[in-house]
């Protein structure tokens, strides 16, 4: 169980350009379920996902993983936790330019004590499932937005993480691919993975076990 208690995030705190991105968020995310966070653009979905994924520190409030308050834990601990447990699909896709699709997919494995080359078959299988196998050796710059998003999806799954955090995972893909992603998400849930998605996609909302709605940095349902 992931629990958020009174999470508030203020950017540029105390400065004239101060922004309150999140205000007193409380939520419980059950393990092995699909949780969707939805709401209009700029409501704080990405910020909330980043806080859950421990890549952003809240200004106030606590993030609790399985009863353990990890908010104040060291950077080293959080990094190790992310390495071992979390796979991210970013809103801006965030593939590294200059590398090809396969190299980007294997990148998270370089921080682990394993041989990334042993995961090529798995990467190829996922790429095939998402219909971008032929793009494996293409540079990021040569891929369309939709193809990049599918690569980012494979990258998030390559280390078989316990938690998958997906920020608008279907925004750049066509209907068919979107459908494939839904199926993969459901498969992952069946395998006991915890999936947290920020999305506007009604199809993704349909497969969610729990939906939270954000508005103007506050949780409304």
């Amino acid at each position: 169980m992931i629990e958020l208690r009174n999470i508030t995030k203020i950017y540029n705190k105390g400065k004239p350009n101060e922004v309150i991105a999140l205000k007193d968020i409380n939520m419980k995310i059950e393990e092995g379920k699909i949780t969707v966070i939805t709401g209009p653009s700029g409501c704080g979905k990405t910020t909330l996902l980043s806080i859950i994924g421990l890549i952003l520190t809240p200004t106030y409030g606590d993030v609790i993983y399985n009863g353990e308050n990890v908010t104040k834990y060291s950077d080293y601990w959080k990094t190790k936790f992310r390495r071992e447990n979390i796979g991210f699909i970013f809103q801006h896709i965030n593939l590294l330019p200059g590398y090809n699709a396969l190299e980007n997919i294997l990148l998270p494995l370089y921080s682990m004590d394993l041989n990334p080359m042993d995961y090529i078959d798995k990467a190829m299988e996922l790429l095939s499932r998402l219909k971008v196998l032929e793009r494996a050796k293409h540079k990021v710059e040569q891929l369309s937005g939709g193809e990049q998003q599918r690569i980012a999806f494979v990258r998030a799954l390559i280390k078989d993480p316990k938690y998958i955090l997906a920020d608008e995972p279907t925004v750049f893909v066509d209907e068919e691919t979107s459908h494939i992603i839904h199926n993969i998400m459901e498969d992952l849930r069946d395998k006991g993975k915890t999936i947290i998605i920020s999305t506007h996609d009604p199809e993704l909302i349909k497969i969610a076990d729990k939906v939270y709605r954000l508005y103007n940095g506050r949780l409304i349902t």
Partner: peptide
């Protein structure tokens, strides 16, 4: 700028500051 983005990305994957 590119390097900053890269460092952030690597850290999100689990690269430690020391790495």
């Amino acid at each position: 700028q590119q390097s900053r983005f890269e460092v952030g990305l690597l850290k999100s994957f689990g690269f430690s500051t020391l790495d």
